[in-house]
Design a protein around this nucleic acid. Structure first.
Lengths: 148, 148
DNA sequence: CAGTATCCCTCAAGATACTG
DNA sequence: CAGTATCTTGAGGGATACTG
């Protein structure tokens, strides 16, 4: 039995997002999905998570509209979990997490996996918030406008 | 007693990052810090978190080099928690979380807080991964290069 | 005000066995 | 292979009282 996904009523999008995907496994599942993983056992092997937990998270991600469950086209019995449009829209988030980790959590020269632009073979450039004119936006140039 | 921050040995930056800041409160603390919150009781009021938990998270964020603890310049006894350089570097991550939440977790027309560019008063533009030439990079244009 | 020290409790997570 | 069912454990989190 799954608890209903409450999609919290928080007016802050950050709070609402973290309450949905801010747990130990969801974003790692999404990362693997971007990496081409589709099958239950492949997620399980990749993550080393207990099967019941994986089952629960996959269901929640499907309920949240981030993953879709579709029959394998190979005729086998199993299903495949693929990113929906909302799931693909998490690409900037996973990338931001990855790039911050690369910059701040590895010693200089320490090896880590890396996101590559397939066509050129070069690492994906740092993603930064920008203005319309292309200049980089710093935290101090912004403020949060709260609800009326 | 704080458990030592193990800074996990995972070779994947996403995994390492989530293991450090992927809990229920850390990113919300960071969000508040970007919003100008500096004092213990202000974090507490804003988040509604138990004081012992807040104390623990602030210490972990300080240990991780994301926040720095400095004496208030007003001569009062209390300290202030401010973002370090590594903390400020989380701006793209918090923004990605916010923008995904705005796009996917609110009904059309549902009110939410919003990040504004102070100078213009306009909402911050969507942050997207781009190539050097400025074109938008899609998930399928990339792949993860694993460790040797 | 800014925390620390306890106590308690729920739920996430793991292990294992089982089913279609 | 792809899950579900059940049991157990422990960490995360809340409430409250206390201290400098």
């Amino acid at each position: 039995m799954t608890k209903p996904v409450p999609t919290s009523n928080e007016p802050c999008p950050v709070a609402r997002a973290t309450s949905l995907i801010g747990d130990r496994w969801s974003l790692l599942i999404v990362r693997d999905a971007f990496d081409g993983v589709r099958r239950f056992s492949d997620f399980q092997r990749s993550l080393g998570v207990a099967k019941n937990i994986l089952s629960d998270r996959l269901r929640k991600l499907v309920d949240a509209g981030i993953l879709a469950c579709q029959a394998s086209r190979e005729g086998s019995a199993y299903q495949e979990y693929v990113l929906t449009e909302a799931g693909n829209d998490l690409f900037p988030l996973v990338l931001a997490l990855r790039q911050w980790g690369e910059r701040q959590l590895f010693s200089p020269g320490e090896a880590h996996s890396e996101l590559i632009e397939t066509a050129s073979g070069k690492p994906v450039a740092a993603m930064l918030p920008r203005r319309q004119d292309g200049s980089v936006l710093m935290p101090h140039d912004t403020r949060v406008r709260k609800l009326p």
